[in-house]
Design a protein around this nucleic acid. Structure first.
Length: 108
DNA sequence: GGTCTGACTAAAT
DNA sequence: GATTTAGCCAGAC
């Protein structure tokens, strides 16, 4: 058995996020059967490889709370805008419209 | 092996 | 209504 840790699951979910959509740490944590483990999700993404579109993961209010970990301050925002997501002041516009819930989209 | 931290969330004050 | 604390779990020191 491999170390299918929290990390791998978080990465997997992040990779499942369709372009032009974003999700929240809580949603991912909830998908991991631990809605209270949202911190683990963010922390896992802290070490996320470039293969993981962590820029599509934001906090519950759609704020790019993790952009500070990205190379460059506007990188995360531009990545989202590149996918058609409107971002303003570190916060996703139409967040409710682009919100992608794994527990809902995958288990629907 | 105990302690701390960490890209969050929600309740309490 | 805004700020603070508490809770969660897993890795790093």
């Amino acid at each position: 058995m491999k170390k299918n840790n929290f990390f791998q699951r978080v990465y997997d979910i992040c990779l499942l996020i369709p372009e032009g959509r974003v999700t929240t740490y809580g949603a991912i944590a909830k998908y991991l059967s631990s809605p209270l483990s949202s911190r683990m999700v963010g922390w896992a993404l802290n070490k996320c490889p470039e293969s993981v579109p962590a820029h599509r993961v934001v906090n519950r209010i759609g704020m790019l709370s993790g952009k500070i970990h990205f190379t460059g301050i506007n990188l995360m925002q531009q990545l989202l805008e590149n996918e058609g997501i409107s971002v303003y002041d570190n916060q996703v516009k139409d967040f409710d419209n682009v919100f992608w819930d794994p527990t809902k989209e995958l288990c629907l």
